[in-house]
Amino acid sequence: MNPVVLDHITKTYENGKVLAASDVSFEVASGELFGLIGPDGAGKTSLFRILTTLLLPDKGNASVLGLDCNKDFEEIRRRIGYMPGRFSLYQDLTVKENLDFFATLFGSTLEENYSLIKDIYEQIKPFNNRRAGKLSGGMKQKLALCCALIHKPEVLFLDEPTTGVDVVSRKEFWDMLKTLKQQGITIVVSTPYMDEAMLCERIALIQTGKILTIDTPGKIIAAFPVPLYAVKAKDTYRLLTELRKRSEIASCFAFGDYVHITLKDNSNESQTDQLKQELIQAGHEQFEIKRIEPTIEDSFIQLMSQTYGR
């Protein structure tokens, strides 16, 4: 049996008015690095809380390590590691005090599983006597990860560990996750950053409580149904408004200084040449159009439109 199983989970708040999870099912295999990708308010945190036995679903069953999240919550709590979103530790305790506290709380010691956290801990060890509140965002996150790992959990749940953390620290954090994965720990991680999806083995894209798709990032990208083009011109805003008016364009979204478009009719390759000519004639400078590989963000947008008919 897979270590993490969600089976038709539905969860609402405020007497059914707010839908946090709508018929969500997925499984995470042993030793897998699984990502839950979606914007704020998509329902990621609710799913994490159900899996970590902190919330009961309205409908459906959840199990972790073969144990029922409702009945066997005490056993589950002993065997998992959890880093909640916005988890900020005890600001007024030092690094060492935080670690010792959480180690004891989970019935372990810093020394007992030292090999597991060694790589991460050594980076913050020089600040052992500094209060957690005085650490930088990246350091805090490392400390939090150490605290979550200190009892050698079999499954690790990380809810938005990289939110609000700068790029450098984010990169380091994902490197740490890869190392942990090599030690056989099953990891479920959530993030609102689409670009982090590529760093997971398998991902679920989630939006307003619904799973849009579940697969490896590569397969999700490969499943993009139509050719995707990137268009660029000097005046992006003008390009955007003019492209939106054109009848042959199916979708049109700004991606940085490019605009990604799909066409309604994909049988005729020469359409793009015509588009180019007409827009250059309309006075667009530095015009450029090229076929590109979709990113996860393209897929997300496409799946969102498909699911919600935007």
Binding site: T53, L54, Y82, P84, R86, L89, F102, L105
Partner: peptide, 11 residues
């Protein structure tokens, strides 16, 4: 602080 979640999840 969110630490209550950890405390609850602990044994």
């Amino acid at each position: 602080l969110g630490t209550m979640e950890i405390l609850l999840v602990s044994p």
